[in-house]
Amino acid sequence: MTRVPAELTDRLLDVRRIYHERDIERFPRAREVLGRFPDAERIEVLSHQAIPGLHGNAGAVEDWVRNKREVLVLGEKKSLAARRNGRSADWIAPSTANGCAMACAYCYVPRRKGYANPITVFANIEAVLGYLERHAGRQGVKPEPNQCDPVDWVYDIGENSDCSADALVSDNVRDLVDLYARLPHAKASFATKLVNRDLLAWDPRGGTRVRFSLMPEGPSRAVDVRTSRVRDRIAAIDDFVEAGYEVHLNLSPVIVHETWLAEWAELLEQVADGTSARSRAQLAAEVIFLTHNEELHEVNLGWHPKGEELLWRPDLQEAKRSQSGQVNVRYRTGWKGRWVRQLTDLVEDKLPGCRIRYAF
């Protein structure tokens, strides 16, 4: 197992219960994880996806953060498929984890899992690695540049989790970084709100793109619960570039309020002043304005109502029903387009040369 930063782990995790699928110890990765938390209670469940008393339990709202700190889930990823994307990556890789130790108030994963989303580790990492290597091999050379990358096929390895936090629990992320360090024509990518400096000791050889998620410090303190401070994420950019990672910015979620544009101007100046010329030369960014959810809003009122003052703004937002039938809210048509242009112009002004890969 990789060395884990003790202070960071202690702040985020105090694992007391591990829910696991039957016969999970047949996987070496599961045995490693169980060995890291020898005093935790072990509870066998039929499926990692539906755990009685945890998922779908409205009464667990008041234990929202406690579950993230004290609960871990071990399961097998049974469906291995790469899904086309075209925005943050060409492909969404099969997950090697799900859920998070952090508690960002706008996170969409709890909508699917139901009131609690602690880290789930998928123990069959060898199967995932083998699938991804074969998939990348079938793609061959990328025929032409696109907004994901001019050369490589990009695989998002952290759609449903934060890989920096996952690396506190298992070596799954390190195995993925090692894989993409040697695969031709392919690159891993993940967004993160956590500075885990253990990743600096790995050898990515340019095969992994780390997208540090940034927003102004004030809103971040209200809604980025249990994450690294924004100034610490900015301070880590140079170190990750020097360690062999490609580093991009995930300007997300953009939360509109009365002083939002001035705060973003200050943030972008902090990035410009706090990074080297080498780092800035390879920067690119994606810009994603907030989409919120009616059910998640109701959940958040049960554990973190202060954040909803920023996130839930009916005066600025309009409803849109998702394909799954849920009611999402996003900034109103017309207004949002104008705000997107204002922010992208600001990026061009404050971070000249930072290419915006997409904005919506």
Rank of each mutant, 00 (worst) to 15 (best):
L179H: 12
S279K: 07
A97D: 09
W264C: 02
M102C: 06
L301Y: 05
D273E: 10
R16Q: 12
G137T: 11
C104W: 00
T227R: 05
V340N: 03
R278L: 04
E298M: 05
E308V: 00
G53T: 04
D10F: 03
I288Q: 11
L12K: 06
H248C: 14
L214T: 02
A165L: 07
A123L: 04
L12Y: 04
L179Y: 10
D39F: 07
K77E: 08
E44H: 02
H185R: 12
S164M: 15
A89C: 13
E41Y: 06
L251C: 12
D156Y: 12
I43Q: 11
K77M: 13
I157T: 10
A97K: 08
K320E: 15
T227N: 14
P253R: 01
L251R: 09
S322Q: 13
F212L: 04
L176C: 15
D273S: 11
I356D: 00
R330Y: 00
P28C: 04
A191D: 02
E286I: 11
P118A: 00
H248A: 14
I356H: 00
P305H: 13
A105W: 00
E21T: 09
I288Y: 12
P184D: 11
A188H: 04
V109A: 01
Q282K: 11
Y155S: 08
G86E: 03
F289E: 10
G130M: 14
G140T: 04
L283G: 13
W260P: 03
L54C: 05
L251Q: 07
I43T: 12
